[in-house]
Design a protein around this nucleic acid. Structure first.
Lengths: 143, 143
DNA sequence: CTACGCTAGATTGTGCACAATTAAGTTGTG
DNA sequence: CACAACTTAATTGTGCACAATCTAGCGTAG
């Protein structure tokens, strides 16, 4: 087997692992009416609220085409509020509502639940994480 | 840092690596009018043609809700043909057209190109692959 | 033969990903 | 001031992911 075929398999494996992860998140988050990307956005806001759409997009690696409708849904669900900046009307500021803040506490056990399902040791997780970050950097650099 | 937070980061890393990979595939496959999932379907057919929709779905891990429209697009693009089985009219057989077969040769360098972009050694790729497969199995088992 | 249950695919509806375009607002320069 | 260049978000269009439902066809028990 050549190295390149291995790389193709690697892509497929990453692809399938990502789906397996989101399936687990879906099961856990479904009772709260959240998807994994929405949860990611909330995680980011819990740490850094408030953020502009652009800042948020930079942190979660999503552009306005994905983020705009996602934020609209989160706002409709009552978790966040969008407001135009007064000094620069191009900028939209995203803040948490009381309900959105409360979710942080309600979802505090999610990482633990994910950890249980992943079932890898701390050392394995760290190693895997490092390798994936190197790989991602390499893929981004050449594309 | 707790192990569970590490697992959350691991999910995010997998998620980002998957996107980085598909971005590379997108760039490579775009001249051929193909997406990564479409390429996966063709890869499978090049090895096993003809296949039923169900067999194909089992191999690429996609259900009919995703596969049906994808196959419709591949058929519209002239790469495949769908035909009802005569003995059991519920079954749809998916075959390659001459153009679809020719693509196998035109795309023979794709794994090599992916390998160049990934830039990992054969040993690293193998290790990573194994770890991801174990992780995926664990995630599927518990969800 | 009829009815029930099962299977294969297709369809519908919601949401994400992303390229391309648009709209609105801001800033710098003549 | 006028206006071109740039920035921020939103919108549009295509395609994937997946749950839920629907339809058609098959097979068997009664």
């Amino acid at each position: 087997m050549t190295a390149s075929v291995l790389d193709s398999q690697l892509c497929l494996a990453v692809y399938k692992t990502a789906h397996a992860f989101t399936a687990v998140y879906r099961r856990i988050l479904e009772p709260y009416g959240l998807t994994y990307p929405q949860y990611l956005v909330l995680l980011t806001l819990w740490e850094n609220e408030p953020l502009t759409v652009k800042e948020l997009g930079g942190k979660v690696d999503l552009d306005s085409g994905t983020l705009s409708p996602l934020l609209t849904r989160l706002e409709a669900a009552g978790q966040i509020v969008k407001s135009r900046n007064t000094s620069d009307a191009r900028v939209v500021k995203v803040s948490l509502t009381t309900a959105g803040l409360r979710l942080q506490d309600e979802l505090r056990d999610v990482p633990q639940q994910i950890g249980n399902c992943a079932g890898v040791s701390r050392e394995q997780a760290k190693t895997l994480l490092d390798q994936l970050q190197v790989l991602t950097k390499s893929l981004r650099h050449t594309s």
